[in-house]
């Protein structure tokens, strides 16, 4: 009896597990394109870049140590970045982290126009026109956001537009714990 049922049961289990994975992809719980960053738990890459905001001469990563900061990779060419902009403004108004923009492969003037149109959530914006710093951070699309601890350790990486729910559920617990 069991011998005859075994193939049917095995097939049913396979079908159920495949359906489960497909449903998770469909409901965006699971992003098969997302790549786990090897930077998590490691010291954040250091950089020194020209500033988009004319106030500061250069943006130095070492300058942000001592308080947690968020590296937000964006560009004025990036449509999904507009989607998350209101969330960034809200995060900035809560003063829990320093917001550092990494303006990726962008014209600094276009970036400035973008910020004057939508508002500037960033304490500092580094201009990475050649995309070299982005490679150091393992960036493969914008927007991407990296949470870095006061000690300079990468706590979390999020790919895609930030929302308040993502900030509250995925960033804040790690920020409070101070560990990935």
């Amino acid at each position: 009896m069991w011998r005859h049922l075994t193939p049917a049961i095995a097939f049913a289990l396979l079908g159920i597990s495949l359906t489960w994975v497909l449903l998770r992809i469909g409901s965006h719980d699971l992003d098969v394109r997302e790549i786990q960053s090897p930077l998590l738990g490691k010291p954040a890459p250091i950089f020194s870049l020209p500033s988009v905001l004319d106030a500061a001469p250069r943006v130095e990563s070492g300058h942000f140590l001592g308080a947690p900061y968020l590296i937000n990779v964006w560009g004025s060419w990036c449509a999904a970045c507009r989607e998350e902009h209101d969330t960034l403004l809200k995060i900035a108004s809560q003063h829990q982290v320093t917001l550092v923009g990494l303006d990726w492969k962008d014209d600094p003037n276009a970036a400035l126009a973008y910020l004057s149109e939508l508002g500037n959530p960033y304490t500092e914006v580094a201009s990475d026109q050649e995309g070299r710093v982005a490679i150091d951070w393992g960036v493969y699309g914008a927007p991407e956001s990296f949470l870095v601890s006061a000690q300079g350790i990468v706590l979390f990486k999020f790919v895609g537009p930030l929302t308040e729910a993502v900030w509250n559920d995925q960033f804040l617990p790690r920020l409070q714990k101070g560990a990935p």
């Binding site: 790549i35 995309g131 982005a134 490679i135 960036v139 493969y140 699309g141």
Partner: peptide, 20 residues
């Protein structure tokens, strides 16, 4: 190529592939 994940950086026109 991380943007177009089924291509190598040799095959891709993506800006990131060019940078890599």
């Amino acid at each position: 190529c991380l943007v177009c994940q089924n291509q190598s950086i040799a095959d891709s026109n993506a800006e990131l592939a060019a940078d890599l």
